[in-house]
Design a protein around this nucleic acid. Structure first.
Length: 294
DNA sequence: ACCACAAGCTCATCCCGGCT
DNA sequence: AGCCGGGATGAGCTTGTGGT
């Protein structure tokens, strides 16, 4: 998969380093180039407005003046084995000016497109779907996971582990966990990164919930499984309040500030962590204060 | 329940026209 | 020419779905 030689000045080359990977005419799958993942705190709900923003808070002007290229007609997609050159262009109306713009698929030279190649078809659809999506013609909507929701998962494991160490418990079913989660979050208005109010939380459905749940904190899950192995008892579902989540978040921040390696998954042995957990659930007063502060 | 993949989201960069 | 601002575009990631 040789890089094409593109003549550019060094600084341009630098700026383009990402782009070069995919301006390549070579239409074979590129090697999965990894890059450090950004702060995953993002949590937004799909809105009909265009999602593109800069890091800073967008000005009212920027929001209201935004124009969108709206593709004409229904969503259509390319299918393997069905040649259709018309899918390589999209006629769009500019939502502001009404100007007509025709966008063209550029990823693969048209003469090289193999309509029997699943990879090529997928590239064409990725391009088309991106344009549809920007115009608000979504195929599905997504509610990003909020930091507090992820903290909930983390606490679920920590509290269950602590409980399993003190007595025999039975792990709840996926549905029981989800019900507890939804009971906590549904109807809540959480705040985004910039303190903005997000849309009211709605129920997380079983498949999506399980999908997320199973991806989170594999080490903690493993530890919990070890803790309950060979024992039995009542089903235990920890009760997790927003006050607990906030205090847990604060504690993590404190540890991080002290330079303590703060993968909570590894932190069971730190003294502070032990102490924190010990007073975590019975410290109702502190919690009540926390909650009223919100 | 798990896995593969489609679709969504954010961010960075490219691109281009207008202005100085 | 160089700067600026905003639209266009793609990468790289997350989330949700559907088949098995």
């Amino acid at each position: 998969n040789p890089q094409p030689s593109i003549e550019v000045t060094p600084d341009v080359a630098l700026k383009r380093k990402q782009l070069i990977d995919n301006t390549a005419d070579d239409p074979t799958p590129p090697a999965p180039a990894k890059k450090p993942k950004p702060d995953p705190e993002a949590s937004t709900t799909v809105t009909p407005k265009p999602a593109t923003k800069h890091g800073s808070i967008p000005t009212a002007k920027a929001l209201s003046v935004k124009s969108i290229l709206v593709p004409r007609g229904e969503r259509t997609r390319a299918n393997v084995g069905q040649k259709d050159d018309s899918l390589l262009r999209m006629v769009c109306d500019c939502s502001l000016t009404g100007k007509v713009t025709e966008l063209h698929f550029r990823k693969i030279p048209h003469s090289m497109i193999d309509w029997n190649s699943a990879y090529h078809i997928s590239k064409i659809n990725a391009w088309r779907n991106q344009i549809y999506g920007r115009a608000g013609q979504k195929a599905k909507s997504v509610t990003m996971w909020h930091e507090l929701e992820e903290l909930w998962f983390e606490l679920y494991f920590h509290l269950s582990i602590a409980e399993a160490r003190s007595r025999g418990i039975l792990l709840p079913t996926a549905k029981q966990i989800r019900d507890a989660f939804n009971e906590t979050f549904v109807g809540q208005v959480l705040q985004g990164k910039h303190g903005d109010d997000l849309a009211v939380r709605t129920e997380r459905q079983s498949n999506a919930f399980a999908s997320k749940f199973n991806r989170m904190f594999p080490q903690l899950r493993e530890r919990l499984n070890k803790c309950v192995f060979g024992k039995s008892g009542d089903v235990f579902v920890p009760k997790i309040s927003f006050g607990m989540m906030h205090r847990y978040k604060a504690m993590k921040a404190k540890l991080a500030a002290k330079g303590i390696k703060n993968k909570s998954e590894d932190s069971e042995n730190t003294e502070e962590w032990q102490q924190f957990l010990a007073h975590f659930t019975d410290d109702k007063d502190a919690e009540a204060k926390q909650e009223t502060k919100e």
